[in-house]
Simulated scan of single mutants.
Amino acid sequence: MLHTLAIMAPIILLMGLGYTAAHIRLINREQIQGIGQLVMYFALPALIIRALTDNPLGETLNPRYLLAYGLGSALLFIPVLLWMQRRRSESLSSAAMYALGASASNSAFTGYPIASMVLGPSAATFLAQNMIIENLLILPAALIVAELGQRQGGSGLDLLRTIGGRLIRNPLLLALGVGISMALLDVRLPAPLDQVIDMLADATAPTALFAVGGALYGLQVRGMVGSVSLIVLGKLILHPLAILIMFSLIMPGETDVLVGALLFASVPMISIFPLICQRYSMGSIGAGALFTASLASFATITCLIALMSRYSLPPG
């Protein structure tokens, strides 16, 4: 128990600092968004590039890991999509948002800081691989389905062009492309630039947690407990369970890898979830789900880490 508290305490304190800073008006919402932009456009890309170039690409990108994590996430995405549309009579666009919230982790802002406390430097390798699944599989799938639900004319090519345009401007995807290219071509950056990459990468975890804590201030859940609960249950319970099943089938016995995958799967949904939901008239539900999942995850992640400690799963 003390080991679990030692891991979670810095995470809770950093998020608490962000929340307190917003509560006492030391920083406002626009400044919090600015901190988030710093993480999204500079610190996280630097971390991904470093993760992909510090070791041979074959050691960083594990095809079986990508397959297991991708299938585990899809194993949840598809049933949630179908169930929400057919059983609960949600529109196709709304059902896609429920499925996205349940199956896409906030690997960047929450997953990496937590995993780095448990796993150390190897957490960056998991982050790089999860970014591929989330940004090239789950997010595009959700956007395609949601746009299909909103379509009022236009060709399939227009739909793909719209979604492709959004994805190609994603800084994390660009960082993945740069990092993989550098690793394949064995490109080495000049020492000053390499040092800048290291400094930005090292700032990722504390800055991201501070930004998440600040963003939580002021969010409320009113009149949508049922809808929010479904998304939170899917994300914090069913997603880790789906990942556990797929890794047990595809990578049995590789406990170090399983620990990393479970830690990332157990965190709340992607931070831009409310913004994406807003386009499909689900902004309040998206914000409520993110708020509730962020609070509930303290308990669920603490329990997960305690269980892994009990069974000696965490490495080191």
Rank of each mutant, 00 (worst) to 15 (best):
Y19F: 15
L26Q: 14
I35G: 00
Q37F: 11
F42Y: 09
I49F: 03
A51G: 01
A51V: 07
T53A: 02
T60A: 15
L76Q: 08
I78C: 12
P79C: 00
Q85N: 11
R87N: 12
S91M: 06
M97F: 01
L100S: 07
L100Q: 01
G111C: 03
A115N: 02
L119R: 07
A128F: 02
Q129V: 11
M131L: 14
M131S: 09
A142G: 05
E147D: 01
E147N: 03
G149H: 08
G153K: 07
G156K: 00
T162C: 08
G165K: 00
G165T: 04
R166F: 01
L167T: 06
N170W: 11
S181H: 08
P190L: 12
D194V: 05
D194C: 01
A201T: 07
D202F: 07
A215R: 09
L216P: 03
G223P: 10
V228S: 02
I231G: 02
L236R: 10
I237R: 07
I243V: 15
L244H: 03
M251D: 06
P252S: 10
S266E: 06
S271T: 09
L275W: 10
L275E: 15
I276N: 00
A287E: 00
T302Y: 08
C303V: 10
I305Y: 10
A306L: 06
P315W: 04
